[in-house]
Design a protein around this nucleic acid. Sequence first.
DNA 1: CAGTAG
DNA 2: AGGCCTTACTG
DNA 3: GCCT
Length: 616
Amino acid sequence: MFKDMSFMFPLATVNLTNTRIRTLTNLIESNGGQMKLGPDTLMIVGSDATVELCQKQFAKFNLDFEQYRYQFLNPDWVSQSLLNKKLQEQKKFQLFPEVVFQPVLEEVPEFKTKLVYVEALAKTVPVREEVVEQDDGDINIYNIKDNELRMKYEKRMEEFRRDILKEYKQILDYEYDYDLDNFHNQVDDGYEYLLEDLSILKKEEPQIPESEKFYGDDDCQITETRKVKFDILDGLDLGKSVVNVEQPILSAQLKETKQFNPGLKRKQQFWEAKKGYFVCEAGAAQKCQNNEIIEELEKLLKIYTNEKDKGRCIAYRKAIGFLKALPYPIKSSEDLKDMPTIGDKIKKKIIEIMQTGKLTKVQKLEGQEKNVAISELTRVWGIGPTTAATFYFKGIKTLEDLKKNLHLLNRNQQVGLQLVKDLEQRIPREEATLIFEIVKREIDDLSGVQGLFKATACGSYRREKETCGDMDILITRCDGKNTEDFLLNLITRLEGKLLTHHLTMPKRTEHDCETYMGIGRVSNQAVHRRIDLKLYPKEQYGCAVLYFTGSDHYNRSMRLWAQKNGYTLSDHGLYPTQRGAHNKKLWKGEVIPCEEEMDVYKILGLKYKPPKERSV
DNA sequence: CAGTAG
DNA sequence: AGGCCTTACTG
DNA sequence: GCCT
């Protein structure tokens, strides 16, 4: 059975980051090859040119290509095999011509990775000497006479087979997990609103008997559930045969969604029950009960952010999110029992804060020269933790030092340094309104037609805060026509009246939206402010406004809700999406036009929240 | 690609 | 053992 | 650092 899947290789053995995989995919696909990325496996099909390209790319990645070459299939072998409708065992081993099997115990290295099982497999099977038929009809072919050695290989093959089967099952199994894991993850992320009823965390989800399981939607019944064979074609073309789509369906959009999303309705029902736990539905959390603890942990979070300790950052962010949502104050270590996101280490820290009011760890780290320097340097726009750290190691530790080393800064950072005092100040609401008025007036003057373009000031301004950190102004053309150089012209016009420095100039992206980032002030005496202007096509406007209105926390909640309901939400739009194992995106549909925020809420089935109530 | 920002 | 949000631009 |  496993002969047809030996081309799949565990990704764990290859040191490829997501970015690298993306690069590799683009490279391969733009040269006619194909790459299939499973949850943990990588498969590449292509020509000699593909292999050559990969070889070069691997060199760039500083990876030893030879070590991973098994991943690349011999194209002749593939086409031959497909032609013969069968992947021939004999031919398979032509892939590894230089490997000569030596059935000697000492020659079999103790491999530790899964990849090696494949290699061992390849070495053991090619010469047929003994055929054994098992009870279940499976035929095993051995060339190893030494019983002990054979058992060893058999065991390895079995393990390998199990692993691959598991992985395949994860990709192909469209039946959703109803277990609490999903819900745990959701609370986990700390994005969600936790109501008083914490018992939900411990409640067992009832087992659904097979007869009651729901495999399809009313208007989209599954007529056939086909077990996909382990064949290369199925590997490349997942899931299409699962659903009968001859049924009347609302729109082409939905038709496609359902084709790829059998059981969506069942899934939606599941999440509908949990809706109240999402911030985007529940609204602002009640008054926070654990401020002291949270403040101290946030200090630690900031330090870890500067140290670029990504893992810890997430852990602390989750813990903080969870504590923020907790409806009661923590009084004793008893209260911390069995809390998600709070493990031993964080628990200890919380106890320390409860007892002494602070953390020795924070004191220690905050006092460190490096951390002082980094928090000082990152005040400058354009300098993040990494740049700050390199500066620190060059002996540059304060803003004064930076001023003496202007040649080390890029233009934006120089501007950021020059205006650091101004940009740190919050913008009073009146001034923000004034800036918005100036921009709006200029938009109308430039377009020549009142109301042709509309603009919205987002961010905390829209959430009706008294002050805001920067101005986020979103613009769209209401008749949906091309906007050409509108944003550029607008910026030119604003140069004398508002804008003083440009940070990034607008450039058309593939989504047809443009972003400008800059600095401006309402008068020569006024404080400089960060000003962002964004031009979006009107189909994306709703999503963009929603996204840039925030808050951060609210956004995450909403994106998560979208994910759980079979969509992907970003500033560019709402897309139906099929996700497989590990939440990996398998398929992304066409964008659903949302000109107004309301459209997004409607499609996601959420109650509309006025911006004011989104400050979570 | 890494770093930065949103 | 590997992932913790996504997308885009700059240099 | 936490979780599966």
